[in-house]
Amino acid sequence: MNSKKTGLQPELPPFVPIDQVGVEERAARFRTRSIKAESKVHALRLALQMVDLTTLEGMDTPGKVRQLCHKALYPHGIDPEVPKVAAICVYPNRVRLARQILEGSGIRVASVATSFPSGMGQPNARIDEVRHAVEEGAEEIDMVISRWAFLSGEYRLVQDEIASVKEACGPSHLKVILETGELGTYDNIRRASDIAMDAGADFIKTSTGKVSPAATLPVTVVMLEAIRDFYFKTGRPVGMKPAGGIRDAKTALHYLVAVKETLGGDWLTPDRFRFGASSLANDLIMQLMKQKSGSYQSADYFSMG
């Protein structure tokens, strides 16, 4: 799939300015859709299948990762109709363990790499980390871009870095984290999205989850529009992953509406859209149970993680 070397084109993508007020208005409108019971159940199930169950903390013991993997395998415990999440997202040194547990389940293992979350490591070390994660069995790599380089105008450096990470990924999917909370403006977010896609990203992702603000709906809309324009230009579909700060089912549904109305139904699949979240899965399961039983649920009856 890499034969075209899309990442090494000499020109930077053209600058596309973003209408801030327009984008925010548009995003606000996605929150006003009324989703009725049957569609809601469908959407909740879909959203759950799109979750990248994530734990990225210094305190990620093997035990904690094991627990999270079991949460991915048995989302509800009792009700087998509750669908499974798309992937588990962990640090490189937990990839092997996660792979062992999830082997054969259809749940993918994603790993962050390239000196997550700051991206301030040595360039070679960052690439080595990607190779290491891939060797350990990561099927998806979530890289961070060098925000310092982007913000000081060294777009070419950012582009080259993404391209070389893409190369190091081999067959594994590459998600590029823009860390939109640090980019400052929608113009920058659009520009970073264009550069990332141009350099070969399979997914573009909003945030690490370590910086506030993380994913917001307007930012996601900007990125979705970038994906749309890129698709029209090149015919290559790129996925989208908002991450961080999406904690409840209601918010998740707003994102699905935004995807549907910006990119169409083709993007409503875990291959092209993901949520990076940890507590979202539980809320989605709770809302599914609410729809099923008719009574509001309590967190007391759902496993943590």
């Binding site: 008719g294 009574s295 509001y296 649920q297 309590s298 967190a299 007391d300 009856y301």
Partner: peptide, 8 residues
């Protein structure tokens, strides 16, 4: 009815 059935 909703209060009574609320599991929380």
């Amino acid at each position: 009815p909703h209060l009574v059935r609320h599991l929380d």
